[in-house]
């Protein structure tokens, strides 16, 4: 299925969970926040949150300058 990942189309396997996707991308779940369709997905639920066709997913890292 296709999702929009950080604004770019990306093909992932059906019903992939957020945890699986982060692992595939080698992203440390403790250091990123994940939003799906403008809702923040709580990290304690990444393992049970499955993605659907057309989901818009953004991986947010804190920005530290200022």
């Amino acid at each position: 299925m296709n999702i929009l990942f950080n604004g770019e189309p990306r093909s992932v396997r059906d019903a992939i969970t957020i945890a699986e996707l982060l692992e595939k991308l080698a992203l440390d779940p403790r250091r990123v926040a994940v939003e799906v369709n403008l809702d923040l997905a709580p990290r304690d639920r990444h393992g049970e949150t499955t993605l659907k066709e057309g989901d818009q997913l953004e991986v947010v890292t804190l920005v530290g300058g200022g």
Partner: peptide, 8 residues
């Protein structure tokens, strides 16, 4: 709550 750890 948002981010457990700061980026290394």
């Amino acid at each position: 709550c948002l981010m457990q750890e700061s980026p290394p």
